[in-house]
Design a protein around this nucleic acid. Structure first.
Length: 599
RNA sequence: GCCCCUGUAGCUCAAUGGAUAGAGCACCUGCCUUCUAAGCAGAUGGUUGUGGGUUCGAAUCCCGCCAGGGGCGCCA
């Protein structure tokens, strides 16, 4: 927020260095640690190191301090800077508190929901996430994926990028066919009531079918024959799907719709609005076409005449001598396509039809190799956007008893966890806030329960695995979503009890350190948005939001607002509370967490 | 065999190559007749897996090793 002042100071430092023949290194600016005062700082270690490397006999830390002291003298006075300190090689510039506090608060309350929004950028980003296979229910692993993707989409969008949200559900494959087969064989015509019940029922059928089709120990010849007969039936159904058999296709579309209804309902609950739906089955035909193109361009090698498949020797084609991307198949020997082929076809659609400059894939880290191969082939193919394809991988979510497995029916469903979350919040709520009406309580419980779940997923670095513990995920104390929501509620509570928000205010009194820290954190929000977007890391926003809430809670406790006698001070603090509330709301929104008015 | 990820307080996790490695949970001490105690203030807790190296400066970068997880041509 203070680029102008920073520019003025930076040019003064450069001028001083130029005059004194000091080879200045790039200046990096950061907030001054050890809170209580407020400002920005830079250091001269890099500059001193340049001198040392140039042959000067100096001690870097001592020389950095020397330059800092000289720079301090050279800077003189700057509008808006109350004091300059040179310490341990750092140059600390303290802001004139009143003026800056007013600027920050005024800007927030002028921009409101747009506070922190970045200037529009020329590039278009597509974020692909929320892509469970159909015919399965949505589990907590999908929840991590969806929350991560949605938070990222909200962050890059708010940072100024033209953003498209895309989902790419796997709607075909042997797993899907297995469910169709078992449904048709054993449950034909049945259909449970309720969107989620029906979806979960399909999942149960899948686990049953898998058990029937798996070889068992000590199986009798009769059992073996039955199992093998089932397997033949299943593959026959896949063949029929492939040749567009009307019966199988209709069955497939009907059951697929059941899954999609369930998925759409969960996305509605999570407030995720997809712009584009790509289905795996849609790219099958185009995928076949691009194989020919890649062969013609000499990128792929057709080994089918020798009884092999169509492959891409990626390392060789890129001219790499060391093994990196290896070789992968883009078409089976029987002429059918693979996941990789479909991803190539999909990327082509993204680039050519949707004019995407950057393509982000929020996909399980286990598919890292696959995506690196896809990006490398896209590059060979001539797509310059391949450079800006990015795999946001994330560690998988497992259970204390081991990995989740849809095949074994050992999954923790998101819907179940959500229901449990709401139940627990309601229990806490009726104890702590008996005044809230029955109707509102249910709504607030959903906001808090979902907030706790979302934050537990976002507050861990994406490349770390999560062992899902429901008691941890639904903890409402400390470093959690509800802690942040509570800060928002408390701010709201103060504002509700005031006689309205003053139009303007002066911060011309001695501010409490808690006030200064809160204002400082608010002022950093726009930069944090850009940083999180640049690095594709929702975690940065999650951490920031917690810090902001923490500063507000401390402020709340230490600094009276409504009870302040002095009218000037009270009005300034009221506006500060409103600015804090707004910034918390904006930050929570980027995390796809709702801000309840009461709790 | 090769490649990727992870290893930080008892537990779960933070920390643009820079100032004193920080939070939460758990445990302990205080704080509700005062704007919501889902909170605040404080105490305890560290050889950042390990051994080298680079650097004025390393949890962070490089190399070796140890431990755990994942991946590696006709699954997705």
């Amino acid at each position: 927020m203070f680029e102008d002042e920073q520019q003025i100071i930076e040019s003064k430092i450069r001028e001083f260095c130029l005059k004194n023949d000091i080879p200045i290194a790039e200046l990096k600016w950061s907030p001054i640690p050890f809170s209580g005062e407020w400002g920005t700082s830079t250091s001269f270690f890099a500059t001193a190191a340049l001198e040392a490397r140039a042959g000067k006999k100096i001690q870097v830390p001592a020389r950095a301090q020397e330059i800092a002291e000289q720079a301090k003298a050279a800077i003189g006075s700057v509008q808006g800077i109350s004091r300059v300190d040179a310490i341990k090689g750092y140059l600390n510039l303290y802001f004139s508190t009143s003026e800056y506090a007013r600027r920050v608060v005024d800007e927030v309350l002028a921009s409101n929901a747009d506070f922190g929004r970045g200037a529009p950028k020329s590039e278009r980003i597509m974020v692909e996430y929320a892509q469970p296979n159909t015919h399965h229910s949505f589990h907590i692993g999908h929840h991590r994926n969806t929350i991560l993707g949605e938070a990222l989409a909200r962050i890059v969008e708010f940072a100024g990028f033209d953003t498209i949200r895309a989902s790419y559900p796997g709607d075909i494959g042997l797993g899907v066919i297995t469910i169709l087969w078992a449904y048709d064989r054993f449950y034909k015509g049945q259909e449970p009531q309720g969107i989620h019940e029906r979806g979960q029922w399909l999942l149960k059928i899948y686990a049953e079918a898998t058990a029937m089709l798996e070889p068992k120990e000590n199986e009798t010849p009769e059992e073996k024959a039955k199992r093998e007969a089932y397997d033949v039936e299943r593959h026959e159904m896949y063949r029929k799907w492939d040749i567009n058999d009307p019966y199988v296709r209709e069955l497939w579309l009907k059951t697929r719709e059941w899954s999609l209804e369930e998925l759409r309902d969960i996305l509605r609950i999570l407030d995720v609005k997809m712009d584009v739906w790509f289905f795996e089955s849609d790219v099958d035909v185009p995928a076949k076409e691009i194989v020919g193109e890649l062969i013609a361009k000499g990128i792929a090698d057709d080994e089918r005449p020798q009884g092999g498949a169509v492959i891409v020797k990626i390392d060789e084609k890129l001219g790499l001598t060391k093994e990196k991307y290896r070789t992968n198949i883009i078409m089976r020997s029987d002429g059918t396509t693979l996941y990789l082929t479909k991803d190539l076809a999909l990327a082509k659609v993204k680039f050519e039809q949707y004019h995407v400059d950057r393509s982000i894939y929020v996909v399980d880290v286990r598919q890292s190799m696959h995506l690196q191969q896809a990006f490398a082939i896209l590059k060979l193919w001539g797509f310059k956007q391949a450079e800006k394809c990015y795999h946001l991988g994330y560690g998988f979510v497992s259970l204390p008893e081991g990995a989740m497995s849809a095949r074994r029916g050992r999954v923790v469903l998101f819907k179940d966890v959500m229901d449990e979350a709401i139940k627990r919040v309601l229990a806490v709520e009726s104890e702590k806030s008996p005044d809230i009406s029955e109707e509102e309580r249910r709504h607030v419980a959903e906001q808090i329960g979902l907030g706790a779940l979302a934050y537990s997923m976002l507050s861990v670095d994406n490349n770390k695995d999560i062992i899902f513990d429901i008691n941890e995920a639904l903890n409402f104390d400390g470093h959690t979503g509800p802690y942040i929501q509570n800060a928002y509620v408390r701010a709201n509570s103060i504002l509700k009890k005031s006689d309205g928000l003053p139009k303007e205010s002066q911060f011309d009194y001695e501010l409490d350190p808690h006030e200064i820290e809160l204002i400082e954190l608010i002022s950093r929000f726009p930069d944090k948005v850009q940083q999180a977007a640049d690095e594709y890391r929702p975690l940065i926003m999650a951490n920031y939001t917690y810090d902001l809430a923490n500063a507000f809670h401390s402020f709340y406790h230490a600094v009276p607002v409504i009870q302040t006698e002095d009218k000037n001070v009270r009005e300034a603090r009221l506006r500060l509370v409103a600015a804090a509330k707004q910034t918390i709301a904006n930050a929570l929104r980027l995390l796809d967490i709702q801000a309840p008015e009461v709790m």
